[in-house]
Structures are given as C-alpha cells and as structure tokens.
C-alpha cells in the first residue's frame, strides 16, 4: 500500500502495521493488512458492518491476538511484548470505547483519576486539579465531576470517556465510533473537540467510524477496510475510487451532503 504524499508533512511513524492477519472464531478478518500512522495525524477507518474495524482497533491496542504480521506502536512490537511491557506501553495511549466504558460504580472524577492513581505518584490535590483540567478539556461542566455515569447523557458519557482517555497525557488516542448514537449537533461538537485536542496536545488519532461527517471534519487520511485489506487515501482521492463499496459509501445521501460541503 503506497503512502500518499501528504503524509510526509507529519512526524515519524507511531503505528506501523505490516501484513496483519487476524482470525476470530475461525474466520479470517484481516489478511495481509498494512497501515502506517505518523505523529500528529488523524486517520479514520471505515468499512461495512462485520468487516473487522473494531477488531483492528482492538488488535492494535493488544486486546486481541493476531495470528500473523507485525504491529509496531511507538517503536515496540505489540505481539512480542510480555504482559508487563504491554501494560507500560498502554499508559502511552488512551482509548475511548463506544459507550465510554466508564466504571459504573465510580463518579466521573474518580473515573478520570483511576489511571492517575494506578500509574503515577501525583498528590491528591494536584490530582483533583488535573481531573478538572481534563474535564474542562473534554468540554464537560465542572459539576459533572461528582455524577455517576448512569446520570449522564450519551454525549456526556463519551466526553467523560474521552477525559479518562486523556488522563495520562497519551501520545496516541484510539476512538471507537466516537459519534455513534449522538445527535448531529453533538456529533459535530465532538468532532470539533477531537480536532482541537489533537492540535493542542499534538495527538495521533486512530478512529473507527461510520460517520461521513466525522471523516470529513476530523481526518487527515481515511482507510477503507475492503477485502481484508485497507485502501488508504484522503477524502478527495477516495471519492474517485472505482471500488463499488466505496462508490456506494460516498454517493449515499449522507455522503453527497458531506461532499457538497467540501
């Protein structure tokens, strides 16, 4: 898979996937998949339901084992790391799961502080201040801190999940369907938030999404998961890709609206 020239303006590669093969329940989902993300880049992965977008994300962050190929994140081979080294590496990225995956027995503030307590020696006062910083950066009001996840709306849960993902100042942010289940206005706000955070924290963002508007608004490059491999390009180049699925994807009603804006 050739990298498009635009990728060169970004930093060195932080995620490098080569010839990835994954098998779930006897079915091969990815076969010889390649991907490279550079520092500061936002890449969105799209593809039909069941093609293994989320599995790809979970494999890169070490939740699924792969049967072939190499995954290198921040210079380390994820497949070869032992338990302890993988835990260390995991503190350098943040993950936002689909519905936030907040710990339901803890308040939002406690959720944000879980990684801090586990991995740092911050004092309680500084920890409270930093939790407020993350909360504000994720666009939540200060009074959300003492609420439980069940008391929040879907959009606020995602923001709280994002605040927790940012807890340890990660270098890479993984987002699994960040705007699924949000109304278009909240979704657009979330897109802006991700883009702003990416800029101010110089994050590398890897997101799985179905949302064409999100792709248009946030990503630098788009990877389409087709035939167990990725086709990578920008929004503009992919629109002209002759593959029937890509054509259908971008020419649907929603796709046309997003293109009209472009």
């Amino acid at each position: 898979m050739t990298l498009i020239p635009e990728a060169k303006e970004f930093g060195p590669p932080v995620i490098k996937v080569e010839g990835l093969v994954t098998r779930i329940g006897g079915r091969i989902l990815h076969d010889g998949l390649d991907l490279e993300l550079r520092r500061g880049e936002v890449v969105g992965v799209v593809g039909g339901s069941g093609t293994g977008k989320s599995v790809l994300l979970r494999t890169i962050i070490g939740l699924n084992r792969h049967v072939g190929g190499r995954i290198e994140v921040l210079g380390q081979d994820v497949g070869k790391l032992d338990e302890r080294d993988l835990r260390r590496l995991q503190t350098r990225w943040g993950v936002l799961f689909q519905d936030g995956a907040l710990f339901s027995a803890q308040t939002v503030a406690e959720n944000i502080q879980v990684p801090m307590r586990e991995h740092t020696d911050l004092g309680p006062r500084l920890m409270d201040e930093l939790a407020a910083v993350k909360l504000a950066m994720a666009g939540l009001p200060p009074d959300a801190a003492t609420k439980f996840p069940s008391e929040l709306s879907g959009g606020m849960r995602k923001r709280a999940g994002l605040a927790r993902a940012l807890s340890l100042d990660p270098e890479i942010l993984f987002l699994d369907e960040p705007t699924a289940g949000l109304d278009p206005i909240s979704a657009a706000q979330f897109d802006t938030l991700v883009r702003d955070l990416q800029k101010s924290l110089n994050l590398t963002v890897f997101m799985v999404t179905h949302d064409i508007d999100t792709l248009k608004a946030t990503t630098d490059r788009i990877a389409v998961l087709i035939d167990k491999k990725l086709r990578i390009g920008t929004f503009e180049t992919l629109v002209h890709d002759p593959h029937p699925w890509i054509q259908q994807y971008f020419s649907g009603v929603r796709g046309r609206a997003a293109r009209a804006e472009a």
Partner: peptide
C-alpha cells in the same frame, strides 16, 4: 510555537475549581 495551542487551550477552557468528591 509548538506549545502555544496547548497553553491557550488550558487558559481558555480550564477555569473550573478542582473536582469535588462525594
């Protein structure tokens, strides 16, 4: 220059008190 966006984000967004606990 690389740190300006972060500092201005913190300046603009983060004006709340430290988080409280139940």
């Amino acid at each position: 220059d690389a740190f300006k966006p972060l500092i201005s984000t913190i300046d603009k967004e983060c004006n709340g008190p430290p988080v409280g606990h139940l």
